[in-house]
Design a protein around this nucleic acid. Structure first.
Lengths: 284, 284
DNA sequence: GCATATCATAACCTGTACTAATTCTGTCAA
DNA sequence: TTGACAGAATTAGTACAGGTTATGATATGC
């Protein structure tokens, strides 16, 4: 009894009282006190086994929890729209793992509405979207404005130009975005304020398809310059600048308000945007 | 949270504080509080599983404990010397189960020293021994004095007698008990004070073997009358009374001091000896 | 933006579980 | 037996974990 008390870091009295309290609760003696040294009764053996089982289970739980905490603390989940670009992202990913070797970055590409849902639902720490929208529970931080250029097949009549004016696009065969996308509305506005109407021949919900159609000569389009880099290098597309003030696509970082970032998320935010973690904290 | 609190019979505040305390201890949030209704985090799910496991184990333990308590409360373990007699014991056993149908009686036969050890060690609630000895930790209650008679083969010269005097035994072939047994010392004393010496031809540590030897005509012996009943009925032995004051073998009930009896033990003691439970209590 | 539901926080209170001091009990040796 | 000793039980006093009530903060739906 005294030894047990010492092991538990309490006095002999506390141990004695505790054992008696347990016996009272269980309604059965755990120790045979008529003999010294004290012996366990059958009920005592049963209880000891039970306690050992529980302690073993607690150990297992603690271990699992530590693994989980490690996991959660060290990986940042990013939800991104497709058009941020795989090449851009792989560059970021390399930079990140170089500067933070213990952290892990997990990027998942999805439609814009899914990005918001992932951030809102907590599956993603950060979201990358164009035309970022704040809301009650989502905070947005501007990241960068991507220059938009006129995309066309190398064989197109305008392919040799250094600059294209809005007026040049009047009546042109045009491949656009679906009407429910922000980028579509922005392009429409750009053309409308300049009094230009294009001939919309097709529309898609993603950049990849538009690039395909443009390369096949179905028409021209206005796309983020960065998203065409690979096709331009391979000579499949030509991109020409638009008249100043040009068209830009703002890309932003969204996150859930009041949710504090783990180390990895903070680090990634800092990589995207020096001082970004502080900005996010202020944006709440 | 409020519902959970109600289920546990505490206020919402207590529940909220408790969850926060657990989160602090574990170092990980269990609930995602940014959304209502509250959702479990992965750590929360892990913890909930752990708790459910522990509760299930506790239920199992409680069940096992109840069974054990039932067992302990309702069965009396009796350790008895062999010579109390199987027929006597089976009669007692029947009476007991008739008057206490919910209780169980478990009798184990063993050598006298093992009876004391079983009682002392707590394996037996009660012990039945001849020439009962009290000690520091063993209390003895006299149960009954068994008449001792001269045992002989039916063909023996003394077999026709109504009564045998000590003097009749001088120089007779005698089968005795081992020297370390109380009953041997008592018989020796009986003969010595009467100035009689017998011719000890064999000795055994148990009545059964003595009866065999007597029946085979190897000699006479002095044995408890009750222990010979079956052999007398079958005509294998003859028992003749000894001169008054005759020899008796006291049989007693022993139990551990300060150990309180369970229901079954009390009932059995009462059956053996009306008022016995009270006597035992006083004997402590 | 307001009403409602629900969770967090603050201030306070009580019973549990501890410590220190003392008494009781079992064991062992003379 | 008896006395000495070790170790457990008991007692009295106290700190604090964990409760309560009251109030403040925050999300959700109209």
């Amino acid at each position: 009894m005294s030894k047990g008390a010492k092991l538990c870091g309490v006095t002999q009295s506390a141990a004695s009282q505790h054992v008696q309290e347990v016996e009272r609760r269980l309604g059965a003696p755990l120790l045979d006190r008529a003999k010294r040294p004290l012996e366990l009764t059958p009920a005592g053996k049963l209880y000891a086994d039970f306690c050992r089982d529980v302690m073993r289970q607690e150990d297992e739980f603690q271990l699992a929890l530590e693994r989980l905490k490690q996991e959660v603390e060290s990986t940042v989940h990013v939800a991104s729209i497709y058009s941020v670009g795989l090449s851009e992202m792989s560059r970021l990913s390399e930079e990140f793992s170089a500067s933070h070797p213990t952290a892990r970055l997990e990027v998942e590409y999805m439609r814009p509405d899914k990005v918001y849902a992932a951030v809102s639902g907590g599956q993603a720490d950060l979201g990358l979207v164009s035309y970022p929208q704040s809301s009650r529970e989502i905070a947005a931080i501007p990241w960068r404005d991507e220059e938009m250029r006129l995309a066309m097949a190398p064989t197109h009549a305008l392919a040799g130009r250094q600059l294209v004016l809005a007026a040049d696009l009047a009546g042109i065969d045009f491949i656009g975005f679906d009407e429910d996308l922000s980028i579509r509305r922005e392009i429409d506005r750009f053309l409308r304020v300049r009094g230009v109407t294009v001939h919309m021949v097709m529309h898609f919900d993603n950049i990849q398809m538009i690039k395909e159609a443009v390369a096949l000569g179905s028409g021209v389009s206005i796309l983020p310059a960065r998203s065409m880099q690979a096709e331009i290098e391979r000579g499949r597309l030509v991109a020409v600048g638009l008249e100043a003030p040009g068209l830009v696509r703002p890309v932003g970082i969204v996150h859930r308000r009041r949710k504090k970032f783990n180390r990895a998320a903070q680090a990634f935010l800092e990589l995207l945007l020096p001082g970004g973690a502080e900005k996010a904290r202020l944006a709440g």
